[in-house]
Amino acid sequence: MTNNTTRLDHIVLWVADPVAAARFYETAVGLEPTRVTEFTEGKVAFPSVRVNEETILDLAPRTFAARMTMLPGSADSAGHPVNHVCLSLPADAFDALRVRLGEHGVPVSDIDHGLSGARGAATRSFYFRDPDGNIFEARHYDD
Results as ranks from 00 to 15, higher is better:
2 T>N: 11
2 T>V: 11
3 N>H: 10
3 N>C: 14
3 N>S: 15
4 N>K: 10
4 N>Y: 11
4 N>S: 11
5 T>V: 12
5 T>D: 13
5 T>G: 07
5 T>Y: 07
6 T>V: 12
6 T>E: 11
6 T>L: 12
7 R>L: 04
7 R>V: 13
7 R>A: 08
7 R>G: 11
8 L>I: 11
8 L>R: 12
8 L>K: 06
8 L>C: 11
9 D>L: 13
9 D>N: 14
9 D>Y: 14
9 D>A: 08
9 D>E: 15
10 H>V: 03
10 H>P: 00
10 H>F: 09
11 I>T: 05
11 I>L: 10
11 I>Y: 02
12 V>Y: 02
12 V>R: 02
13 L>S: 01
13 L>T: 06
13 L>Q: 00
14 W>Y: 13
14 W>P: 00
14 W>Q: 02
14 W>G: 02
15 V>C: 03
15 V>Q: 06
16 A>S: 15
16 A>R: 03
17 D>R: 12
17 D>P: 02
17 D>K: 14
17 D>G: 06
17 D>N: 15
18 P>R: 05
18 P>N: 07
18 P>C: 02
20 A>N: 03
20 A>T: 09
20 A>E: 14
20 A>R: 10
20 A>Q: 08
20 A>W: 15
21 A>K: 04
21 A>E: 03
21 A>R: 03
21 A>W: 02
21 A>I: 00
22 A>Q: 02
23 R>N: 09
23 R>T: 02
23 R>Q: 04
23 R>V: 12
23 R>A: 01
24 F>R: 02
24 F>D: 01
24 F>L: 00
24 F>C: 04
25 Y>P: 01
25 Y>G: 00
25 Y>T: 01
25 Y>A: 05
25 Y>L: 13
25 Y>K: 07
26 E>T: 09
26 E>I: 11
26 E>S: 07
26 E>G: 09
27 T>Q: 07
27 T>C: 10
27 T>V: 08
27 T>R: 14
27 T>L: 07
28 A>G: 07
28 A>I: 10
28 A>S: 14
28 A>F: 09
29 V>T: 10
29 V>W: 00
29 V>C: 04
30 G>M: 08
30 G>Q: 03
31 L>E: 05
32 E>D: 14
32 E>G: 05
32 E>S: 09
32 E>F: 14
33 P>K: 02
33 P>H: 04
